[in-house]
């Protein structure tokens, strides 16, 4: 009984602290949201506030006029995120698992082989040459999925760390005696046992793919294949570029009419909106996974 009371108190404490942290995390985002519906001139003359004196939906009208483009970009981003996450996470787990086996001879060699890529890379030029000249992936959906992010050393080590510390070797040994093949062991036992970390890595991979604009920048030239971040970053960075004093003078572009601040805020909101809608569903699995993993471990 005593433990229960303590647990309850602890939960109360946790709820309070987490509420404060959540509010602190959300306030700036709320400020962006409010700014996106604040009238442009108020935004400039009296700054950002949570209670603007004049509201305006102009920035969203600006977006609606380009809704076809935006919706298509959403579609591309969702597809890329889905493909990247499913393939990436599976390959990552398959790569991490053998390294977690204590009597696997190559475990350290492999670990070093993978870790090395976390630090050293040949730079964008050589990758670009390879992907575009040898693999010809420019302007295909694979250009957004395959380069750079599919398997990252960071995720591999996260998964390996989980196998090493949370899954007992004895489980494997007992199955091995039954004569199960390594591949079966991995898919039918190890993979389900690692749901918490798989869920984590899926989330990370998903976020990386959703936020990525690098691949789009280098390997996509047809705007029909732009993901949402490419669409947004293009507008944002054009503005950023033109704002730099030297560039503006150089090009004689000081009188180009740039999208205003509230439009930029609206773009930021549009970039995270689908996440707000999709995330709770993903989370369902994550929390389930966390609880499930805890019971089995």
């Amino acid at each position: 009984m005593k433990e229960n009371i303590e647990t309850k108190q602890f939960r109360k404490f946790a709820t309070i602290v987490l509420s404060v942290i959540s509010v602190l995390a959300l306030l700036p985002i709320l400020l962006i949201a409010v700014a996106s519906v604040t009238s442009e001139d108020v935004l400039i003359s009296s700054g950002y506030t949570f209670f603007p004196s004049k509201l305006s939906l102009d920035s969203y009208y600006y977006m609606v006029r380009q809704s076809a483009t935006i919706l298509r970009a959403y579609g591309i981003s969702i597809m890329v995120t889905f493909l990247g996450t499913v393939i990436g996470v599976l390959v990552t787990a398959m790569l991490a698992y053998p390294m977690a086996r204590k009597n696997f001879r190559l475990r350290n060699v492999m670990a070093f082989f993978i870790f090395f890529t976390m630090l050293f890379n040949g730079g964008i030029v050589s990758s670009y040459i390879m992907w575009s000249q040898i693999f010809h992936i420019k302007n295909t959906i694979w250009a957004l999925v395959v380069p750079n992010f599919l398997v990252t050393a960071f995720n591999v080590f996260l998964v390996r760390n989980y196998y090493v510390n949370s899954v007992h070797e004895s489980i494997i040994e007992s199955v091995q005696i039954d004569g199960a093949s390594e591949i079966r062991i991995f898919f039918s036992i190890m993979l389900p046992l690692s749901i918490p970390v798989i869920a984590t890595v899926s989330l990370f991979t998903g976020i990386i793919y959703w936020n990525d604009w690098i691949n789009g920048l280098y390997y996509i030239t047809d705007p029909k294949m732009y993901g949402i971040q490419n669409l947004l970053i293009r507008i944002m960075d054009n503005i950023q570029f033109l704002k730099s004093a030297s560039n503006a003078a150089l090009l004689g572009t000081q009188n180009i009419d740039l999208p205003g601040t509230s439009v930029r805020m609206a773009m930021a909101i549009i970039g995270i909106l689908p996440i707000l809608i999709i995330f709770p569903f993903v989370q369902q699995y994550m929390i389930k996974g966390v609880v499930l993993g805890a019971v089995k471990g």
Partner: peptide
């Protein structure tokens, strides 16, 4: 089991190392 991942890492990270 680890082959797909190893191949990917080799292609994605090691081949462009000439840069």
């Amino acid at each position: 089991i680890s082959l797909p991942g190893l191949i990917y890492i080799f292609v994605n990270s090691y081949i462009p190392m000439f840069g």
